[in-house]
């Protein structure tokens, strides 16, 4: 194969990556390590240790963690049920489950807002039934509901793919060797689905951690995730340097989690995780 020719074919992608990923990233880094007068400083990066920023980061991690966990708890049993069901066309089920993704996600979050707000549809029904209305809008709970609703398909798809790929005869072999349902789950199904769960976590945890739109709409602007603070530094405070510094910190966190979950994924492929 002519290497020069194949290299030539990659030019558009290289241009794209350089123009829209590398150069903007360099700008972000440049802003992050300078103050507004342009002198070099670590201040914007170390600003994460300010109590407001630290609290926002911890809340971001916490909500992202809870959302990922709930997504697993919903997706995994669902995947097992779909696998066990006699439905022959499992792709159709997958299709139905990702169908909400076809709608704009802000619309979906606004719909959630309509459902759970103080004068929302759910509270309306509760009042009709004589039950006292709940107040979950503008709380972290509301944000978690939004995140789970939004990112569930990103967990479900890799998990479902992984679970469906587990051969039936391996499950039968374990039963044959004396495994009850619990053994089958803990010794066969879970270890063999780790790679799917791993990539699911990456796909849910990372966007949840950097989230700010859901927090804006469902948190009522009262709950500050790190994403919200960064957004405000850029759009309200116009302190791009601080915004960039916090972005870099967040990026490092995201990178760390990706590496951790990425390792689980590749290890389970090699079969070292039991």
């Amino acid at each position: 194969m002519n290497r020069k020719r194949t290299r030539f074919l990659s030019t558009p992608y290289i241009l794209w990556i350089v123009g829209f990923t590398v150069i903007p990233l360099l700008f972000v880094f440049a802003k992050a390590f300078t103050d507004q007068s342009g002198t070099f400083t670590f201040g914007n990066v170390t600003a994460i240790f300010d109590s407001v920023h630290r609290k926002a980061l911890l809340l971001s991690v916490e909500l992202a963690f809870i959302s990922s966990l709930i997504c697993i708890l919903i997706s995994y049993p669902a995947a097992l049920i779909i696998k066990a069901s006699g439905v022959s066309n499992k792709k159709t089920i997958m299709f139905i489950m990702i169908l909400p993704m076809w709608m704009n996600f802000i619309l979906r979050i606004l719909a959630i807002q309509m459902l759970i707000s103080s004068n929302g549809i759910i509270n309306h029904f509760l009042t009709v039934l004589g039950i006292s209305p709940m107040s979950i809008i503008n709380t972290p709970v509301a944000i978690v509901i939004g995140m789970v609703y939004d990112y569930l398909p990103y967990m479900l798809l890799p998990v479902l793919n992984c679970v469906l790929a587990i051969p039936e005869d391996i499950i039968e072999a374990s039963k044959d060797l004396g495994a009850n349902r619990f053994h089958v789950l803990t010794k066969i199904l879970l270890p063999l689905s780790l790679s799917g769960i791993g990539s699911g976590i990456t796909m849910v945890f990372v966007p949840s951690m950097t989230e700010f739109v859901i927090a804006n709409i469902l948190g009522g602007g009262k709950i500050q995730l790190l994403g919200n603070i960064i957004e405000q530094e850029f759009s309200v405070s116009m302190n791009w340097n601080l915004g960039s510094g916090l972005s870099v910190t967040l990026m490092i966190f995201v990178l760390l989690t990706t590496v951790i979950f990425g390792r689980t994924t590749s290890e389970s492929d090699r079969g070292f995780v039991i």
Partner: peptide
């Protein structure tokens, strides 16, 4: 199957690939 005193050798081996 897990309570029967028989064991099976499957056509496609069905070994546990993660072990």
């Amino acid at each position: 199957p897990n309570q029967r005193q028989v064991n099976t050798v499957f056509q496609k081996y069905a070994l546990f690939t993660h072990m």
